[in-house]
């Protein structure tokens, strides 16, 4: 059931007057790694949120292997459902978004061990590959650095059945050693599990290292 992740003719704006995305389409093959680049404010983060079902587009749709990933049930009036593909409600969405600021993506009042197992229990191998020390699970987010928190956010997103990772500038706030560690680990996991990747970055050098194709979003 592995297939391409496609966004077709997506339009979106945060208010009725200004469109942020105007008829944007992008297609990412299974296991493909695409770097998404473009000027500041052109809608890269917005497109990421639409791809992962965190925002409902005004028009257009996001499909995985040809089937709509998100949407509304016409008759039932349930509103926008993030992730309504096969098995929804029982397994995590196959498209997972990792945010730029890990400290904003974890519950500050919860120890990280609990945050880590929100969706599934990551295996020893994933934790080791990402360099997560067992002792960290007993700490609160404020007691870890951004790089350490981001490792948890990545591990949390790699649930079984996940086919695409959308990474919105996940290493911008990290030092280059941590950046290299995290990306090398994530790319290795993606290759082994045949997970596709959409990565936003402002660095052409990083894009060249992590991606197999570069897509530019115009303002």
């Amino acid at each position: 059931m592995m297939g391409a992740l496609e966004a077709k003719n997506i339009s979106f704006g945060y208010d009725r007057k200004r469109k942020v995305l105007d008829d944007v389409s992008i297609s990412v093959g299974a296991g493909e790694r695409v770097a998404l680049v473009g000027p500041s404010g052109c809608g890269k983060s917005t497109l990421c949120k639409v791809l992962a079902g965190h925002l409902e587009p005004w028009s257009g749709e996001v499909t995985l292997d040809g089937e709509a990933l998100f949407g509304r049930d016409a008759g039932q009036g349930t509103g926008f459902e993030p992730w309504r593909g096969p098995g929804h409600g029982h397994r995590p969405c196959p498209v997972q978004l990792i945010y730029q600021h890990p400290e904003k993506a974890v519950n500050p009042r919860r120890k990280l061990g609990k945050t880590l197992t929100e969706a599934y229990v990551p295996g020893e191998d994933v934790l080791r590959a990402l360099g997560i020390e067992p002792a960290w699970s007993n700490r609160y987010p404020a007691e870890l650095s951004g790089g350490e928190l981001q490792r948890f956010c990545i591990a949390r997103a790699l649930a079984p059945g996940v086919e695409f990772i959308v990474a919105d500038e996940i290493s911008t706030m990290l030092d280059v050693v941590t950046q290299a560690q995290i990306w090398q680990a994530l790319i290795r996991i993606c290759e082994v599990r045949h997970i596709g990747l959409v990565a936003v970055t402002h660095s052409p050098e990083l894009a060249a290292r992590i991606s197999t194709r570069v897509v530019e979003l115009l303002a």
């Binding site: 360099g131 007691e143 030092d175 280059v176 941590t178 290299a180 660095s203 050098e205 290292r209």
Partner: peptide, 20 residues
Amino acid sequence: ALWAAMPQNGFVPTPGVQPY
């Protein structure tokens, strides 16, 4: 290690983390 980890210089990840 910082120098060697830059994407344009080898992208070498030095293992380990900064102590707490």
